[in-house]
């Protein structure tokens, strides 16, 4: 069954690439880069012939993602638990958070650039902003769906607040929490890369912007594929962590 799913996925991928090739050749190949042109560009990119300084850009982007996501996790857990465990604060702030989450986050980006400048700080801020909301809201939902009876039982058995947190709250909300952490990671990555595309001199997004601006479309496509690789690998890492967490609760 698994092998069948896999081969189907590969078939769909290959079919998509074939369709892409046919469509791009029929249209203007400069604007609609066919895979046959994208592959050499990707090779040039990875061999550092088209963009020799790619590693430093890529490293910067990854650093921005790590910092943005790290801050989003810390703040999301802190605010989420703060609002979730304090009923009054939760009632006041949770609706505001949900409303802010519904606003398309990109509208904040110009003001972030004004506050934090054109360098890494504004990208980190944007990645943070995007990752923060889903994490916070997942923690809030997780705290609320924890069965209060389990908390009562643990208290009766002498659980102090930190024990209650580790042995009851965290396992009870693990699935919701991990889901939020995953969504947050994906959005932090998007935030950083979009931030770089919208305005910066370095980072993967700035290269994408550069290639696009100079109509170097094959290079542009190759960079997009690389960006996809970054997103997919963070998602794979998140999946591995999720499995880890499941095993941990099962113990």
């Amino acid at each position: 069954m698994r092998a069948r799913t896999r081969s189907l996925q590969v078939a769909i991928l290959l079919g998509g690439i074939a369709l892409w090739e046919i469509a791009a050749r029929a249209a203007n190949p400069l604007l609609y880069v066919p895979p046959s042109a994208a592959l050499p560009a990707l090779r040039d990119l990875l061999t550092l012939t088209s963009y020799p300084d790619l590693p430093s850009h890529l490293l910067l982007t990854i650093q921005e993602i790590v910092v943005a996501y790290g801050l989003a996790v810390l703040a999301g857990l802190g605010v989420g638990f703060g609002l979730g465990l304090n009923r009054v604060l939760g009632r006041v702030y949770a609706p505001i958070l949900a409303a802010l989450y519904a606003v398309p986050a990109v509208v904040w980006y110009p003001s972030l650039m004004l506050f934090f400048g054109l360098d890494a700080a504004s990208k980190i801020a944007f990645g943070f902003l995007l990752g923060f909301f889903p994490i916070t809201l997942a923690v809030l939902a997780g705290v609320r769906q924890t069965n209060p009876q389990l908390v009562t039982v643990a208290r009766a058995f002498g659980a102090r607040p930190h024990v209650l947190f580790v042995k009851v709250m965290l396992p009870a909300m693990l699935f919701t929490l991990v889901g939020g952490l995953r969504t947050g990671l994906a959005l932090s990555v998007i935030g950083v890369i979009v931030g770089e595309i919208l305005g910066s001199k370095s980072g993967l997004g700035s290269l994408i912007n550069h290639a696009y601006g100079l109509a170097r479309t094959p290079d542009y496509v190759a960079l997009v594929v690389l960006a996809l690789g970054v997103v997919v690998s963070t998602d794979v890492a998140a999946t591995l962590l999720e499995r880890r967490a499941q095993r941990w609760t099962a113990e």
Binding site: Q149, L150, T152, V153, A156, F157, P171
Partner: peptide, 13 residues
């Protein structure tokens, strides 16, 4: 003191 409740409150995990 040990307590048993009407809702057993077992930890599902």
């Amino acid at each position: 003191v040990a307590t048993v409740f009407q809702d057993p409150g077992l930890f599902p995990w």
